[in-house]
Simulated scan of single mutants.
Amino acid sequence: MSDLKNDIPDFQTIMLPMLKLLQDGRQWTLNEVMRALTAHFNLTEEHLKIQVPSKQMGLFRNRVGWTRSYLKKAGLIQYPDRGVYQITEEGKQFLANNPPKLRMKQLEQFPKYKEWRQTFNSGNTKEKQATRTEEQTPEEVLASTVEELRNELATELLDKLKENSFQYFEKFVIQLLQRMGYGEFREDSTQHTGQAGDQGIDGIISQDRLGLENVYIQAKRFSNNSVGSPEIRNFIGSLALQGVNKGVFLTTSRFSSSAIQTALDSKQQKIVLIDGKELTELAIEFNLGVQIADTIDIKKIDLDYFEE
């Protein structure tokens, strides 16, 4: 079985064949991709039976999943629908130059991949992790792997929030703040006000039953552009019109340096800024839009048991 496992290509080796597979421009399902790549690498049913250590998925299917994820981060493929993959114009342009290989190092040339790395500070690529494995203790390797899986989950969560409507995003951030304890988990503690004529306020959370302490919310579902100082100034103006001094501005994107400074300079209103990275970290911490897929028990020797 170990010899068969060595025949299964790593996720970087799968990158270029998978991209070439999609170069016809049509939408491919995961099953179609799996069959074509299985044939390309001459894998048998015995190869496909080999599973990841958790036994929850086939090893080859898992590696194809990581390949797909990194190609999407680089903007070379897209997901037009659930479980469906399609090459992008960037992917076609890359293949037009007849590249000899495509691995993590080559992904650095793509702006979308650089942006993802900047957002999640992901210096811990699988390629770098592999070179450090011999220098790390098992605990360090485990922690590094958990961090990478968490970043991957955060990326998928952020993609989902960008794909859904802005109304959905507004309701999501209200639910998140409730999960964090604002409004004391009372169902009647929140108002979703986002609509035409909302004066820049998308939601209100009452921190007490009488509504004496309210937190006002602004949510911006941006795909690429960062939030600038004009949006922050408008939010501050909206808070002033409401006669309140507490506000939370959340976005799926980033805040420009001028936007951050504008919030810091505000004297009358206390403005908290939450960007896409922090938003996903909070959602994962408070289990909103995510679920536990697997647990691992790490055991150690019970020294008390062996005392005579």
Rank of each mutant, 00 (worst) to 15 (best):
S2E: 13
N6E: 15
I8A: 02
D10V: 08
Q12N: 00
T13R: 09
I14V: 13
M15C: 06
L19V: 10
D24V: 10
G25N: 04
R26P: 01
L43Q: 06
T44D: 14
V52Q: 02
V52M: 04
P53Q: 01
S54Q: 05
K55W: 06
R61Y: 11
R63P: 02
G65R: 06
G65A: 04
L71R: 07
K73D: 15
A74Y: 11
A74M: 08
G75K: 04
G83Y: 09
Q86D: 01
K92E: 14
Q93I: 14
F94Y: 14
A96V: 11
R103S: 06
K105T: 14
F110E: 06
W116H: 06
Q118P: 03
T125K: 00
E134Y: 12
E135R: 15
P138E: 00
V141G: 01
V141I: 15
S144N: 09
T145Q: 05
R150W: 00
R150D: 04
E152I: 06
E156L: 08
S165M: 10
F169R: 03
F169P: 14
E170W: 04
L176M: 07
L176T: 08
R179T: 09
M180K: 02
G181P: 00
E184Y: 09
E184Q: 09
F185A: 01
R186K: 04
E187N: 01
Q195D: 08
G200T: 04
I201P: 05
I205K: 04
I205M: 00
S206Q: 06
R209C: 02
L210D: 05
G211T: 02
E213W: 10
I217S: 07
A219R: 01
R221N: 11
G228Y: 09
E231H: 04
N234P: 01
L241Q: 11
K246Y: 15
K246F: 11
L250H: 02
T251S: 13
T252F: 03
T252K: 01
S256F: 08
A259D: 05
A263G: 10
S266L: 08
K267P: 00
I271G: 10
I271P: 11
E278T: 12
E278N: 04
L279F: 05
L282H: 09
A283E: 01
A283K: 02
I284N: 02
N287W: 04
L288I: 03
L303Y: 09
D304R: 07
Y305G: 03
F306M: 03
E308I: 11
